[in-house]
Amino acid sequence: MNRELYVNNYCIVRDHRIYVNGKLCFESPVSNGLREFAKAAYRNLAPNYNKFFKMDEISKLGFIASEYLLNYISIDEYKNDEISIILSNSHSTLVTDTNHQNTISDPESFFPSPSVFVYTLPNIMIGEISIRNGIKGENAFFIVEKFNPEIIVNHINNLFLTNKSRAFIGGWVNHTETDYEAFLYFVTDKKALPHNRQVINNLYNNL
């Protein structure tokens, strides 16, 4: 059995553009923040999935990246608990955290909202992608100072070598007050680009 993993597909969302396997797939005419960009990118795929509009901005970003990534491949050959999602970022859910904090700071207008609070955990986007695609494998979300392929590559390789999973969505989904960026990739044992730190770093940086 082949014990090596390969990057079969990858998707980058950056500067109001979406690239899949290096090719530009969507471009928003105006660079007007994540909320409008995510909506336009969603409409471009037209998936008719109303839950999308309930998500906070970073979950929308992760969701959009996963939709474009998985749009070009089939995951049907894997059992739902054989597909794992391992993500990372540097700002956790800070933008949504600030939104929640704003609903509770003033005692005169203290109205914490459950639909905001529930998104103040970074792994909620893993939940959203899992619900959308019926994925039931391993989950982990790491918070790192800056994009760090090592943690994700190690985690995915370890899960594979211990037979916990056969297919993986790995990557980085970050949202700050001023910027957003997503880089998701799909890994299996089907021959393509080798799944290692160098390759992941190159894919992330070469756009």
């Binding site: 109303n50 309930k54 914490p112 639909s115």
Partner: peptide, 15 residues
């Protein structure tokens, strides 16, 4: 097609 979080959100709305 509302769900359990929407129900909680409606409680906030009333308040």
């Amino acid at each position: 097609g509302l769900d359990s979080i929407d129900a909680l959100e409606l409680i906030v709305l009333l308040e």
